[in-house]
């Protein structure tokens, strides 16, 4: 597959699956303000997905639509980072997953604002405002709940322990990113990694949470290797269009 198409799917699949997971909290969050916030973030992420898929579909030139990409691909064809498919175990996991994603997403989008690819640059300039808002919110909650009660600290630490290994998958790169960097489409991704490390180290210190030190890292999502939760997410998301493949909605 063309590097540009692959990269756009890696981005769009990540925002779609996180949007799907985030949206599932609607009506079930701990306070009404969080119901609203999670719906709002889900909405931003689905909107960003549509933009990534439009670029991917056009670059691919096979006549597929964004909906075809979302609803008619299988687990092994999805290229999202494994982090975002991790389950909604509890609200601490949902918040931590969001924060780790945001801590990568913001420097990534900021860097893409300077991309040599016009459509990607436009997408990033639009999305970066949303992403900045997302991290302001998620960082604030990580700090307040980490440095909160004993129970909230324990829950946030458990979520960090469970999810930290998957953060590596956000930053996993291969020849796809190298090719695009050489073409000026992508920035120097080492810069994004450094920003992620600085952001998370500072925030976890304020939150009195400990980043796991064992170096354990899970990767594979970028090449379509997922965790066992992924198939269920797709089964739920794709059920209606796949049951009526000739229908338009």
């Amino acid at each position: 597959m063309d590097s540009l198409v692959t990269f756009c799917l890696r981005m769009g699949d990540t925002t779609l699956i996180l949007g799907q997971q985030t949206a599932a909290w609607c009506g079930h969050a701990p306070v009404l303000e969080e119901d609203i916030a999670f719906a709002n973030m889900g909405l931003d992420l689905i909107g960003q997905t549509q933009l990534w898929y439009e670029i991917a579909a056009e670059a691919e030139g096979r006549g597929r639509t964004p909906d075809d990409l979302a609803f008619f691909r299988t687990e092994r064809q999805f290229l999202n980072a494994q982090l975002v498919e991790r389950p909604n175990t509890d609200f601490a996991h949902a918040l931590m997953r969001q924060y780790l994603f945001d801590a990568w997403h913001l420097p990534m989008q900021e860097a893409l604002c300077e991309s040599g690819h016009e459509a990607i640059r436009d997408l990033a300039r639009k999305s970066v405002k949303e992403v900045r808002y997302h991290i302001n919110r998620s960082r604030d909650l990580i700090v307040r709940l980490g440095d909160g009660s004993d129970e909230s600290r324990a829950k946030m630490q458990a979520a960090l322990d469970a999810l930290w290994p998957y953060a590596a998958d956000l930053m996993a790169t291969d020849a796809v990113e190298e090719t695009l960097a050489a073409q000026g489409v992508l920035p120097d991704l080492a810069r994004v990694r450094r920003a992620f490390e600085a952001e998370t180290a500072a925030t976890m210190a304020r939150a009195t949470l400990d980043i796991p030190a064992n170096g354990h890292a899970r990767t594979g999502g970028r090449t379509g290797i997922h965790t066992e939760t992924m198939g269920y997410i797709l089964a739920e998301m794709q059920q209606v269009p796949r049951s009526y493949p000739d229908a338009r909605w």
């Binding site: 779609l16 909405l43 997905t49 909906d67 609803f71 059920q239 209606v240």
Partner: peptide, 19 residues
């Protein structure tokens, strides 16, 4: 039905509505 909305646009609209 948010997680099962049959298109990206319908999903976005339904999310906006529930919000």
């Amino acid at each position: 039905w948010i997680t099962r909305a049959p298109s990206l646009q319908r999903k976005a609209i339904l999310l906006a509505k529930v919000q």
